[in-house]
């Protein structure tokens, strides 16, 4: 286990190194630098700005400086919102995004897994067909379409839920954004659990469990479920990524002042340091999430331990 964790830590560090390097050089490959506008700024101002942000240093020096800043946890100043640093903007937006994201993850798992089990156990019955019909729609309807439909029906027509959620201070403000945000992953998990459950209940060890005289309840919820849940754990990493990026649109549609909104704005304004900083910030979160997921995975599936140590 110890060697496995070290192995995973090393590969995580490697991944982060590549991410930061690639992001840095991509952003610096933009011709004309970040201050090129439709209407050119006066020469002197550009020069002053370049000096201020050390943009006239050689690229390798800027790269090293950027690393120094990052290792200190400093993502630099925002190019567009003067007097604001990227860290401050993330500090403002991310807590709100994180709240929305966590509620969405919990909702996804608490609803998606039981639906998948139900569907597998009632294979070929109406419960299965209904669930899978909805889940098929769920994985094909884009989140922004789902969000607008929800806003239109429940906000504009029926007026049950607010159409804008603001800073997510009241529980009712969570309902629509959480449904819209988790629609895809919830459907995906339901389908995943169903197919994995169907696969597991055909296994020999399930027959063994029945031959031991266990009740059907124990066969399913003790012996089958723990095996069937393993693919769901592998999906947790992509799930988190999907929810984070999905929140770009959801936050915009529900006017939630989260990180996604800042990021989308920075893309619109071509605020390069903010784009770079957010990309790195998101990547770090997701890579760390993947690391945690790998550890959970090993704890649930005892077979992985062996493979991990053999490799590392």
């Amino acid at each position: 286990m110890g060697r496995y964790i070290i192995h995973r830590l090393v590969s995580m560090a490697l991944t982060l190194f590549f991410i930061i390097t690639i992001t840095f050089f991509l952003m610096h490959a933009i011709p004309g630098g970040p201050f090129t506008r439709e209407k050119p700024l006066p020469e002197a101002i550009i020069k002053a700005l370049n000096e201020k942000y050390h943009l006239d240093d050689p690229v390798w020096k800027q790269y090293l400086d950027y690393w120094k800043d990052i290792l200190r946890g400093d993502l630099g100043p925002s190019f567009q919102l003067t007097n604001r640093t990227v860290n401050e903007l993330i500090g403002l937006g991310f807590p709100i995004t994180a709240r929305l994201g966590i509620v969405a993850i919990v909702f996804t798992i608490l609803v998606g897994v039981p639906l998948g089990i139900l569907s597998a156990l009632r294979q070929g019955k109406w419960q299965d067909y209904t669930t899978m019909f909805i889940a098929t729609l769920g994985v094909t309807i884009p989140s922004f379409v789902l969000a607008t439909v929800l806003i239109y029906f429940f906000g504009v027509v029926l007026k049950i839920f607010p159409t804008t959620s603001g800073r997510l201070t009241r529980p009712i403000e969570y309902v629509l954004p959480v449904i819209a945000l988790s629609g895809y992953s919830l459907s995906f998990i339901a389908r995943l659990v169903r197919s994995s459950m169907l696969d597991v209940i055909k296994q020999d060890y399930i027959r063994t469990a029945r031959a031991k005289g266990l009740s059907e309840f124990k066969v399913i919820y003790k012996h089958a479920l723990k095996n069937a849940i393993i693919p769901v754990i592998t999906y947790l990493g992509p799930l988190a990524a999907g929810l984070l990026t999905g929140s770009f649109v959801i936050e915009k549609l529900f006017s939630i002042p989260g990180m996604g909104g800042y990021f989308v704005n920075s893309v619109g304004n071509r605020d390069y340091t903010m784009i770079m900083g957010s990309t790195i910030f998101y990547s770090v979160i997701l890579v760390v999430m993947n690391f945690i997921v790998d550890i959970i995975y090993v704890m649930v599936d005892p077979r992985i331990k062996l493979m991990g140590t053999k490799e590392g």
Partner: peptide, 23 residues
């Protein structure tokens, strides 16, 4: 269920797959 594993029990062909890997 009271008979299976108690009065009549079974040994299966493939011991590699007949035991639950996660317990």
């Amino acid at each position: 269920q009271k008979i299976r594993g108690n009065k009549i029990s079974m040994v299966f062909q493939d011991p590699m797959t007949s035991l639950n890997p996660v317990y």
